[in-house]
């Protein structure tokens, strides 16, 4: 589940602690933009210590490492892998080159840390025109890739256009990224909404992202978690339909039927997958009890 993916600045101990209680699906400890060049070493050490000792619960622990073109990236990967990061967010990803560079250092890091090869994932942050055009190439470059994420600010700068609240300038990038990511069976995470004080604006932006096929949204402020979760909360009728789909498929399986129809429509595997995704969102939104969703999954 990657609905809400919250950035936490890497060199502020007080804010890092907040990651233990803030209600997000993914925590992204930031070593890149949030940390000045002079403090990269301190932030790396702080995050490594925090990952080793603090209990962030069920949240996915991601570290945004520095640009693969800098000497920091390698140190970042080696240290935070050892400290127990679940995944690394690779900034400024452009095609398979960036991915393979990160993946090969990660191979080495996992070996040093005595971790099974391939256990640490990659989330690719795509934020340049070339990155967008090579999104599919990047997404399919390594089995470590778990998700694609859009960085709208840098992209707008690269495109030479201004970043607006309506975000029309991102339309192509968004749909292109969803297509590339979903084609590889990955989660696709939308660019952050940039006004920390405008919760409703964030809700509208997140709702729009969901309508395009995104699985979640980056957040630069804890104030955006609630609107993002609200946007990704399925409607009661979506949930009811998803429950019907799942039970119809279960019945069909029990009765040995190959295909099954519901409300006059044929249900196939993609529909079932979609229904399961809806139920997962419903559970995360507190609409279904956890036991119910596990029993669904167990079928």
């Amino acid at each position: 589940m990657r609905r809400s993916c919250l950035f936490l600045p890497g060199n502020q101990p007080n804010i890092l602690q907040n990651g233990m209680v803030l209600p997000c699906d993914v925590l992204i400890f930031d070593l890149e933009d949030a940390v000045s060049e002079k403090e990269k070493d301190a932030a790396r050490e702080l995050i490594s210590q925090a990952l080793t000792t603090l209990d962030f619960g069920v949240r996915e622990k991601v570290v945004r490492i520095n640009d693969m073109e800098t000497f920091h990236a390698r140190l970042d990967i080696i240290n935070v892998t050892k400290a127990g990061a679940d995944a690394l967010m690779v900034p400024k990803t452009v095609g398979s080159d960036t991915v393979q560079k990160a993946a090969s250092i990660l191979d080495e890091a996992e070996e040093k840390a005595d971790l099974p090869l391939g256990s640490v994932g990659l989330i690719l942050l795509i934020e340049t025109a070339m990155g967008i055009e090579k999104a599919f190439e990047a997404a399919s470059a390594s089995s470590r890739v778990r998700a694609l994420a859009l960085g709208g600010e840098d992209l707008a700068a690269d495109l030479g256009c201004s970043r607006t609240k309506a975000s029309r300038e991102l339309f192509y990038a968004r749909t292109r990224l969803v297509m590339a990511g979903r084609a590889c069976g990955l989660d696709v995470i939308d660019t952050p909404f940039t006004d920390a004080r405008d919760a409703e604006g964030c809700y509208e932006d997140a709702s729009y992202a969901r309508s395009l096929g995104f699985s979640g949204k980056l957040a630069i402020s804890p104030h955006h978690l609630e609107p993002i979760h609200r946007a990704f909360r399925p409607s009661e009728s979506e949930v009811a339909y998803a429950l019907d789909v799942v039970s119809a498929m279960r019945r069909a399986k029990e009765e040995g039927l190959g295909a099954v129809s519901l409300r006059g429509k044929m249900i196939d595997l993609p529909v079932l997958a979609q229904a399961e995704r809806t139920l997962e969102l419903a559970t995360a939104s507190g609409m279904l009890s956890t036991s119910r969703s596990t029993s669904t999954k167990g079928d």
């Binding site: 301190a42 050490e45 210590q49």
Partner: peptide, 17 residues
């Protein structure tokens, strides 16, 4: 009022520097 992990990280960084 730093937590232990912060204290260790900062001291480690200062010495490394």
């Amino acid at each position: 009022g730093a937590l232990d992990c912060t204290l260790r990280a900062r001291l480690h960084t200062a010495i490394s520097r």
